[in-house]
Design a protein around this nucleic acid. Structure first.
Length: 173
DNA sequence: CCCTGATTCGC
DNA sequence: GCGAATCAGG
């Protein structure tokens, strides 16, 4: 497959919409994100409004001097939190994971999902007792292809992690 | 480790 | 022109 006019148009559109290169590659199919990035550059439309709608990059300060507002927060914030809940994720790493669906029913109301609200990008981790009133799905933003958010994905895939996550994009579809 | 875009360079 | 490999970064 090559860069037909149609594919280039779609690329421009999606790139303009702020989708990441990998997302666009997934949309187009049969190309890698590298191909997309390479094409984007050759087309000369690299720069764009920062912050993709979905994945990482909550912000990119790009400022030279520190505002030095007040004291730094206690959390070191080691790496860029690409998911949704930075401090939460850190807590997960530092503390032993609690029971999957019992203990931590601490999902923001606005994030919770029912079977109706679930989408491709909402965490399907069940919360509470299925069939009962308090049952709902996590609803967080999923970690790329996975059905769960970063938090629940860690829990879900903890015991058996030997299996390589199939990282290939769409070019084998 | 997950991800992001940027760049290089052989094809 | 193309894109894998690599680089730099959150």
């Amino acid at each position: 497959m090559s860069w037909t006019d149609e594919r280039v148009e779609l690329l421009k559109k999606l790139w303009g919409d702020g989708l990441s290169a990998s997302q666009i590659a997934g949309e187009l199919g049969e190309v890698t994100r590298n191909a997309v990035i390479g094409k984007v550059h050759r087309l000369g439309l690299s720069g764009r409004a920062k912050t993709a709608p979905t994945a990482a990059r909550p912000r990119k300060p790009m400022r030279e001097a520190e505002p030095r507002r007040d004291e730094r927060p206690q959390r070191p914030m080691t790496h860029g939190n690409t998911a949704l809940a930075p401090s939460l994720e850190q807590m997960v790493q530092e503390a032993p994971a609690p029971a999957p669906q019992s203990a931590d029913n601490v999902v923001p109301m606005g994030q919770r999902c029912t079977i109706m609200n679930l989408t491709e990008s909402t965490c399907r981790w069940p919360m509470g007792e299925p069939g009962t009133d308090g049952f709902y799905f996590c609803g967080g933003k999923t970690k790329q292809g996975l059905p769960y958010c970063a938090h629940h994905a860690r829990i879900a895939y903890q015991p058996v992690q030997d299996r390589r996550r199939d990282r290939r994009l769409a070019y084998l579809a």
